[in-house]
Each structure stands twice: as C-alpha cells, then as structure tokens.
Write a protein that binds this DNA or RNA. Structure first.
Lengths: 362, 362
DNA sequence: CTAGGTTTCTTTATCGATTCAGAACCACTT
DNA sequence: AAGTGGTTCTGAATCGATAAAGAAACCTAG
C-alpha cells in the first residue's frame, strides 16, 4: 500500500492538493461542507496528518528549541540545578507552543551529529564552559543563548556574578574564623579531558585565576577566582589551600571528599563549588562520624531544592528564573542589538552546616 | 544576500549538488582533495550545514523520539518520578544518537498542535491515564510505547502491577493495627477536569474500583483498587475510609492533607498514592506538630530519591529502568508481534514513617 | 591490448507539503 | 450591462536535500 499524502486525498476527493492542505491548516479558507468531505476521506484513508518534516521545510520554522548540555543527559537529569533550569525554560516554551529538544553529550562525536540534524529554531547552551560543542552549535547560525558561561561575544547571556558570590561565601567562612579551608572545585568534563584524571590537584593552567573578564571562562573557574579573592584578602596563602576538582555529581564528589578529609591536619571547613558536591562531602563526613558543623563546616553553591532540608549553607541563585529568562531571550522576536547580558541576583543563605571552627584536635 | 544551500556551493565549486551533499554526508564517496575544496568554499560562504528539515524529509527518519507528558512540563520537571524516568530513557536514547523531544500539556489545545508538528520517529506516552492526548498521539501512526497505563491494545507497555503493590502497602498498615486509615489518591488532571474541583471526595464514577482488567484504567485507579482490596480483606468498610484526591504535586497535596488531618477522630495512618503526595502530608503534619510515626503513619508509592533521606515507607519501583525499557522498546528495530507488555518488579520498603497506632487521644 | 572492476562524479526523480498569484463564480450596486 | 468586492478553489513554483542509476575516467590482470 502506498503512502497517503495530501495528493492522495486530493485525487480521491477531486480537488487540488492546495485545498486539502488548507482543510488542515486554514479551515477558514474553504467551505465547511467541502472541508468535512475532505476530512472524511482523510479518515477513511487513515491519513496521519500533514507531514511535519515537509511542513517545517516549507515554512522554515520548526517551533522547537534545542537545549544543549555538555554532559550526558542521564547526568543532567540527576542534577537538580539542571532540572530546575529546565523547569523554567519549559514554562515559557510551553506557553508559546514551542517544543523542547534536549541534547546531551554522552561521548565525543555523538552530539555533534545530533546538533547538526536537530530540526530547531534556536539553541540554548547550558553551562557549556569551554566545551567543544559551543563551536558546533554556533556553526548552525541560529539564534543562541548561553547560560552560565562562557560569555561569547554577540550571543545573549544569562548568568550570575559567580566570582563575587563565591567571594562572599568564602569570606563568610573566613569571617567565622576558619583558616584550614579546603576547596572542591567543579571542573567541567571538557576541561578535565584536556588535563589529567579527576580528583587530582587542579593544574596551574586551569587554576590561573588572576584574570580579568572571567566571564570568558567557566562558572567553575569564576567561582574559584572568587574563593581566591577572599583568601587573599583574609591573608591566607593560596598555596596552602588544598584544592581538588571533580564533576558536578554527588557520587563522584565523594571520592574527592575522601582525599580532603584524609589530610592532616584536617580542614575545618570545605568550600564546595556546587550543592551537589557539598552533599557528597557531607555523605563522607557522616560516614566517618565527623560532626557538621561541630568539626567541619561545609558550604555549597546554587541552593538546589534539597539544600534546605539538608540545612546546607549556600549561595542562592534564581535557578528557575534563569530558565524563563533564557527562554524569553530565545523566543523574543526582537533582534537585540548589543546582545543582552542578563546578570541575575544571588544571595548567601546561612543554614546549619556552618559554625566557627570548634574541636579540631586530630 | 540569498540563502546558502548545497546548490550555491555546487555552483561555486563547479560540481553537482549531489557531490556537495556527499562531501558532508559520505566523505568516502569523493576524493579528499575535492572534499577539501568544497569544505573551504562552504566555510567561505558561511554555510550552516545541510538543512535538517530537508534531510529528514528526504531520509524519512528524524533520529528523535517524542516524550509526551499529560501535564505541563514545568510540573514534570518538579516530579522526581518523571525525572527519574527521563533519566533512564535518556540513557538509551543517547547511546544510539537519538534526540529527545519533550512535549507537555500546559493547557488544552497547545500540545495537540505540537504533537502534530513534532518531527519524530516515535512517541513515548508517559502515564497518560485516560488523557485525550493518547488519541492525538496514536493518530500519527508512529511507533508508540505507553508507560504506566492505560494499556492500549497493540501498543507496547511498560509498568508495574500497581494494584498488587498497592494492596501490599495497605495490608502492611492494616497489619500494624491501623483501622482509621485515610487515602490521598492521585487523580490525573484529565480525569479531574471531567469531574469537579480538586480535593473533594472522589466521585463514585472514578472510584468504581471493582473492575477486572484495571490496566485499562490509570495507575491512580489501579492503586486505589489495591487499597480497596486490602481494606476489604481486613474487614474494613470501604465507605468508612475517607478518600481525597489531588494531583501528583507536593504543594497541591498539602491542601488535601489539611482536610484529612482535620477529620475527627483523626486518622492514625495516611496512604498516599505517590511519594510526592506523601511529602505533602508530612509537611502538614510537621507544621501541626503531629509526630510521625508516633501519632500518624504515612506511606507513599514510587520510592523517589528523596524518600530514603526522608525515611518514608513506600513501594519501590524501578523508575529509571522503566525509562531504559521504554527506550529500548521504541528504538528496537524488530517488530514485536504481540505488543510486549513489560511488568517490572516492585517491593515494599519499610522505613521510619510507619509504626503501630499509638497515641490517638484527640 | 582489452575485458572487467573501481573510483569519482552527474543526472534525474523524488520526499510532502506551503505560498502566492490568479481564475471562476456569486451577489450587489449603479 | 458593466463594475466592485468577496469567497472559494487551482496551478505552478519552491523549500533543501538524498537516492538510485548511470557515465567517465582510471586501474588491474590476463
């Protein structure tokens, strides 16, 4: 049996293809009676409706936006920060009848092809710090918005002032009196691939935080720069601050935490570059019977939903609002001339995982 | 400036359009030297790569599957059960280079159009209990897999034995000695729309649980039927069991919980049809200073990630595995003849929110 | 030196719709 | 009778690529 198309129906009813097309897409363009007849025949022939690919090709509009993650999607769905962002993005997309096409980066090469083949009207790049996919996406010459670094000239941007926020949270710990502070940085997979294995001390290259315009680098790096600023100001030698890096994943972060809590003397505080990582640190502390905040203070970053019940001191940023803003930037028809660069608010939220350094006799 | 297509490049280089196409899609079909030259010209003309819509039209394959939710996406992303499912689905999709097109149902009418226009090779219907979108999706005549009810004849299905599992969890509570049990059922929005406002006693119609083949109805209904079975067996009059229904949303569930905890005598146990709802009940209990499990036992269903830290007694079902299974069913090339109906394992997980009825003097 | 096989590129025929300009018809006015 | 304006429908052109088959050039071996 041949495939049923508009033409099949047109022939059967005895009208032109155009008229059948109108019956589906512009019912007001033809007599109700004829439309009825066409619909009946369509039903009879089991016509599945106008082919979306053909329609998209002709119209030049897909009604879908692509959301590109730089890690595997299965990771992204485990990360409440990413999910919160999607929530916001979905809200505005749905309202305008726009679909969401999610693209992850499970392994090098796969996503490149998917991006090239994605039938979309624009892309949202989620936290693509230094990732090769950025290039792939830009080559499509479609509207793009970047979320959370890097700032690409000419491309709309949504983020927060990571460096400043990081400075605040580190300053808060220092203000409590902590001096033996350890850092768990979130280094994106892409950067990691370029250097060595995980959970090893951060390389100088990646750690060269003394740079202007950190927006051109990742959020991870910007936060690190902020921690650095605060330490410097408090008179702490940056060389004395142990730093480990890890992916933004609770389980993987645990490994880094093991190393840091093995240090002697043990740090009295750990700064985690994300909440997810902070949870990993707390897991290990709990497992070893280290009291938080009595023996160890922990701070995170992001204020994901689970942070509140966990009592985690962290930096709140408007996760969902980032999504809605990014969505609006992408869907707005107006051509912004200087690409907008939206910097959202953040706030230090003090909960129960931080206290002045206490019992540290180890 | 005119748009750049394969033809533009072909003309400029002086070869046929097909050759340029091959340069992009089948590099082995032409001399490396020529390919280089074509790529150079493409670069020069700022060609964004072969148009995906045109490509899809010609190839007849999109490399994308649609995932249809029956609520707004912004809700779905707040529901860890849905997110867990997506995680599993994403895993298998990514491995085969398949994209994910998410479609929600923010308000009647919008999704229908999006579904009709979705450039996909198949659909995964997520828990579409009695939802009108099922029809819309089926009309596309593409491969479909249904997750969690209803069972549509001829359509592959993935789920668990909701009724049996629900029976178990209710029987457990009854076994502990509870007699004043209240139920918070999860009624899908679609069914709700057909009846009245939320948080009112379930209508007889929806509640007519005494039916064979509950697979044809929703998971919500199947679970209710299971609770019913257990009560009946324990000699509890079904009429005496207060039931409220609500959406699967923590916040909305709180309202239902308010009503139930206002009852005098107050129930000693609450059966929630999902964990998310159970959390809502626990929120209200905490807010009113009702001790769990001392004064009130609570059980959920699903065992979402947050259930463990919360100590919630619940029914575990393989959330992520459901996603991978659904994905495989959809991506597998083989035509299953009798549509497969995969029933996965479940298990009652007893934690800290349940105990024999204790202090109930109110 | 030629039959047969490769490699490399071209030609022709779609994929399935939408757009846009215009034809045919109708009812009314002047 | 001719002009005006609307509705309803048609035909041709187009969206941007890929598939399949064929032609030309180039090897290779007998």
């Amino acid at each position: 049996m041949e495939r049923v198309t508009l033409q099949t129906i047109a022939d059967r009813v005895g009208v032109s293809r155009t008229t059948v097309s109108n019956a589906f897409s512009r019912p007001d363009q033809l007599k109700e009676e004829l439309r009825q007849r066409i619909m009946e025949v369509a039903e009879e022939l089991d016509y599945p409706g106008p082919n979306p690919a053909a329609r998209t090709l002709r119209r030049g509009r897909a009604g879908v936006i692509g959301v590109v993650f730089t890690e595997a999607l299965s990771y992204a769905f485990a990360d409440s920060y990413a999910v919160g962002f999607l929530r916001g993005l979905a809200r505005v997309a749905e309202q305008s009848g726009t679909g969401l096409h999610l693209i992850g980066w499970p392994s090098p090469g796969v996503a490149e092809e998917v991006i090239g083949d994605a039938v979309v009207d624009g892309f949202c790049l989620f936290s693509p710090e230094g990732h090769p996919l950025v290039e792939t996406v830009l080559r499509r010459r479609l509207p793009v918005v970047t979320v959370d670094h890097p700032y690409v000239p000419g491309v709309p941007f949504v983020g927060i002032e990571d460096r400043i926020a990081a400075r605040e949270v580190a300053a808060y710990l220092l203000g409590l009196g902590h001096r033996r502070i350890a850092i768990v940085a979130a280094q994106p997979l892409a950067a990691q691939a370029r250097t060595e294995a995980r959970t090893r001390p951060v390389t100088e290259e990646w750690l060269d935080v003394d740079l202007a315009g950190e927006h051109r680098f990742g959020a991870g790096r910007a936060r690190l720069a902020g921690y650095h600023d605060a330490c410097l100001k408090a008179g702490l030698a940056w060389e004395d601050v142990p730093i480990h890096r890890t992916t933004n994943d609770r389980e993987i972060a645990r490994r880094a935490a093991q190393h840091l809590l093995d240090l002697r003397p043990r740090p009295t505080a750990v700064i985690a570059a994300t909440d997810e990582i902070a949870f990993g640190v707390m897991d290990v502390a709990a497992q070893r019977g280290i009291d938080i905040p009595g023996e160890l203070s922990v701070v995170g970053f992001d204020d994901v939903p689970a942070a509140e019940p966990a009592g985690l001191t962290t930096v709140r940023q408007p996760i969902t609002a980032k999504g809605t803003t990014a969505g609006r930037l992408l869907l707005e028809p107006s051509r912004h001339d200087p690409a907008p660069c939206v910097l959202m608010e953040h706030r230090l939220v003090i909960r129960r995982t931080t206290a002045p350094p206490g019992d540290t006799s180890h």
